[in-house]
Simulated assay, not measured.
Amino acid sequence: MSTPLYNAEILRLAATIPYHERLAAPMATAERRSPICGSRVTVDVALDAEGRVSAVGLLVRACALGQAASSLLAANILGRTPEELAAARDALTAWLARKGEPPAWPGLGVFEPALDYTARHPSIRLAFEAAADAADAARGPR
C-alpha cells in the first residue's frame, strides 16, 4: 500500500470538523462508540418540515480516522433525508468490508488506505451510524 493510513488529507479533515458543538434542542441524538479503540461520536440532528436535516451538532472524541469521517459527514449532511443517511452508512460499511462500490458520499475515498485495516473500520463508521440513527429517531414512528 503506497498511501499512508494517516495522510495529510485525513489529518486536515480531522482538524476541521464543521458543526463541532452539540445542538441546544435537538430533535434526536445518537451516540456510537468503537469497542476496539474507545472512539466515541455523538450526533444531534433537527429535521425540517420536509424531513431533511436542517441542523446538526457533533461531539467527537475519536482517533484521526473517526474525526476525519465526522468531518466529511458534517460537511455534507445538511439537506439529507434519513433514508440518504442510512444508504450512506450501509454503502460505507459494505465498501469497507470490500462488498460494495465506493460510497457516493463526497470525500470518502480518502479512506481507501484503511481498507486493509479492519480494526480501524468501526471508527470510520461511527459518525455515519450515529447520524443515521439520530435522523431516523428524529423522523419519529412511520
Rank of each mutant, 00 (worst) to 15 (best):
P122N: 13
L47D: 09
A114P: 02
A68V: 08
D90S: 12
E50L: 14
E112P: 00
T29Y: 00
L96G: 01
A97W: 02
D90K: 04
Q67N: 08
L115K: 08
E101M: 09
V45N: 08
G57M: 10
A62H: 05
R80A: 14
A114M: 12
P106Y: 06
H121I: 08
L47Y: 06
F128L: 12
R33T: 15
P18Y: 08
V110G: 05
A130V: 04
I10Q: 02
S70K: 03
R125D: 05
P122S: 14
A14H: 01
A114F: 07
G66I: 07
I17V: 14
L65N: 08
T81Y: 04
R139C: 04
P35S: 13
T118L: 09
L11A: 11
P122I: 12
V56M: 12
P35G: 14
N76V: 09
A97Y: 07
V53A: 06
P113I: 12
A135L: 06
R125L: 15
E83Y: 01
L85E: 02
P103Y: 01
C63N: 06
P113C: 12
A104P: 11
W105D: 05
D136K: 14
D133E: 15
A64P: 01
L13A: 08
E21G: 04
M1N: 07
R33H: 14
A104G: 13
A15I: 10
L47W: 05
V41I: 15
P122K: 12
P4A: 14
T93W: 06
P122F: 11
V53G: 01
R61M: 14
V45L: 11
G79Y: 08
A64N: 11
A135E: 06
F111N: 02
T3V: 13
R98G: 10
A87M: 08
P4S: 14
D48F: 04
A114W: 03
D44L: 07
A131M: 13
I124G: 10
V60D: 04
A25K: 10
L58Y: 00
R125C: 14
Y117K: 08
L5W: 00
D136I: 03
A14W: 01
V56E: 06
C63R: 06
S71F: 02
Y19Q: 12
R125E: 14
I124W: 09
E50K: 15
A69V: 11
Y19W: 11
G38F: 08
I124D: 05
R80F: 02
V60T: 10
L65S: 13
L73K: 09
D44C: 08
Y117H: 12
R80P: 03
L73V: 11
R142N: 12
R125G: 09
P102V: 10
D90I: 03
S71H: 04
M1D: 10
G38R: 02
I17K: 04
R32Q: 15
T42Q: 09
A46V: 00
S70C: 03
C63T: 05
E9F: 00
L73H: 06
G100S: 12
M27N: 09
R142H: 14
T81W: 05
H20A: 15
A119S: 14
A28C: 13
V41R: 03
G79Q: 10
R98T: 12
R61P: 00
G109P: 00
V110D: 06
L58I: 03
P35Y: 03
R120G: 05
T93L: 11
A75Y: 09
P35M: 05
A14I: 10
K99L: 13
A30E: 07
T93V: 05
